[in-house]
Design a protein around this nucleic acid. Structure first.
Lengths: 351, 351
DNA sequence: CTGAAAGCGCTTACAG
DNA sequence: CTGAAAGCGCTTACAG
């Protein structure tokens, strides 16, 4: 009993089939394999009758060209690899849609791989893509962005980072304008009259988190509110971390009247804790997030947030890759604007 | 300005690099490329000193073996392709985790591709995987399951379907026991005292939907409640469709006191519409879903549902593939059990 | 322990 | 319009 690894050729579904090659078809059609190749590709330089006979046979035997063989000679795979931190995050779903939009237009296949926010895994996954000779790689919300700087130096396959989490500059990146967007959300809260506003962040050290905190602080400053470190607590970018952080805020001696969360997933956990403590959103505490996940409007109350143009960001990332391919771009750092979406989770503070 | 497609070899990040091959390393090390190949693979049959010198050089030049070349000779790619209807669906995220658990143990790489619930796309994506000679394919929530029956006949690469949506039998599949799980949810509602229970389904014709409807009807029968077709409405498996269907139920002449939804995404939309109509869950209408998505417990009220052991299902699907590889299995249809999770969205009807 | 050779499945000049 | 030949980057018997 051998695995494909040991056996070499798969026996099909127990039927002992192997993949038909152009040689098999050539034999069946009584022509050379070169002719089969031509007929199956462009169809140029082959007599119509011959070509259609070949195509018919190929169809009959269920011929599938080997991308491996093809890419070996062509030097490209017409494939883009996308590394996502977590398929479960609705944010990546939006981004992936955008990547696919553009990729499909240009006939690239898009494959995803999960890093599960594990830096080691992220590196392994990027390597797996490289070995399969994808033409380009897009890494979303990388946890090890900085690592790419030296790697890029001799990287054969172009990499575009999307909302990378580590400080540093990259040849190619697409990022949301975090400071500005955070400034706007927080300003929205100060304008509602809030003076004690909490911030629940991501794990520290990540660029997005640092930038969102900066925007938050700037809004406070604008409003003449002194920064209170006790109101800034780390989360982990997920509901669990948001919940734990919120609990700590609720145990403080003076409650915030509003909380700005690093992202919507964090806000999800925070809102739940607020409810579990017998308080109401936004009556007792206003909550705002970041991302505009599809589920925001299905929450009760619906979540105020910053819309990241996820699909657009995915499109831009893919377009950047396409530009690199054509040589039109050697370095490209794009900042996109977020947009404040006010929903029911934020309101003026009580009295 | 050429794309990789036209150009053949990528110029790297503008640095004119091409991928180093074992020949390049052989030249640098002053040995034959066969020796390089051996040193880089097992390391057997090569003098230690030679091997380590070769590995050092490979490291220096940033050598990445070509999976294409390797798989061409070995006949396998050590890669599994997973087709998902929608990366945005948290259900697939759970399944993918399970697939990865098992795949990682056996050193298979896992790549995902999106079908966006579009049958044409699904077929194209499966084909893309076949051409890249993945060793196996797992298709989740397929919309075109039936299509695989003839295809499987001459399929070279084994396919495992997970919760396929179309009637028919497949060589390999993993499915939740829909009738039983639905029976239990609906029974939960009848036992709470509900007599007018609605069902919001998926698009019709899908196997899962048919089976869940059957379980629902059986529970009604058990409780001596006549089936009322007016209470069964089609959705689309997403919040939008759930909302539209709920609206129709709310416009009926006699409101249901409880609604069982095809899945949690559907329930999400239904609950929102209930709120928008000024009614409360579960006070006015109880709502139950199916899947147990991570977000269920973050809803207000948290959603009663059936837990699908998504991760476990993913593991089983991958294990099925592994069994096919070793020849231990030629046909394998697994039914897994769901589990009722009672949360706050269901309660006894008013008086 | 090492090298030369054949071959995996394709594409693509080069001849005819 | 068609075929023979070379070659993409690797692995693996086969000789030494």
């Amino acid at each position: 009993m051998l695995t494909p690894k040991q056996l070499g050729r798969l026996p099909g579904t127990g039927r002992g089939l192997r993949n038909a090659s152009i040689k098999d078809i050539a034999r069946l059609a009584g022509v050379s394999h070169s002719t089969v190749s031509r007929a199956l590709r462009g169809g140029v330089l082959v007599r119509d009758e011959t070509a259609s006979r070949i195509r018919k046979i190929a169809e009959e035997v269920g011929y599938r060209p080997s991308a491996a063989a093809r890419s070996l000679v062509s030097g490209h795979s017409d494939t883009i690899g996308v590394v996502v931190t977590n398929v479960a995050d609705p944010f990546v779903a939006g981004v992936v849609r955008g990547i696919e939009d553009r990729a499909e237009e240009h006939r690239y296949a898009v494959f995803l791989a999960n890093s599960n926010a594990d830096p080691d895994r992220e590196v392994r996954v990027v390597r797996a893509f490289e070995e399969r000779r994808v033409d380009g790689i897009i890494v979303t919300s990388s946890r090890v962005g900085a690592l790419y700087v030296p790697v890029m130096e001799r990287m054969r396959v172009p990499i575009v980072l999307l909302n990378n989490q580590h400080p540093g500059h990259f040849a190619h990146s697409v990022m949301i304008d975090n400071p500005k967007a955070s400034l706007e959300v927080t300003r929205h809260l100060t304008q509602l009259g809030h003076r004690r506003i909490g911030y629940i962040g991501d794990r520290s050290g990540h660029q997005s988190d640092t930038e969102r905190l900066a925007g938050y602080r700037q809004a406070l400053e604008e409003a003449g509110i002194p920064f209170d470190p006790a109101l800034t607590i780390q989360g982990d970018g997920r509901p669990e971390g948001g919940g734990i952080a919120m609990t700590r805020l609720l145990q403080g001696n003076r409650l915030p009247t509003a909380v700005f969360c690093y992202n919507d997933m964090t806000a999800l956990g925070a809102m739940r804790q607020i409810r579990l403590h017998g308080l109401r959103v936004p009556h007792d505490i206003s909550v705002a997030g970041f991302d505009d996940l599809f589920l925001d409007e299905y929450l009760d109350p619906p979540l105020t947030t910053v819309r990241q143009p996820m699909r657009e960001m995915g499109r831009i990332a893919m377009q950047t890759l396409l530009n690199i391919f054509t040589g039109e771009s050697n370095s490209h750092n794009v900042r996109v604007e977020g947009r404040l979406i006010v929903r029911g989770s934020t309101a003026a503070p009580k009295e």
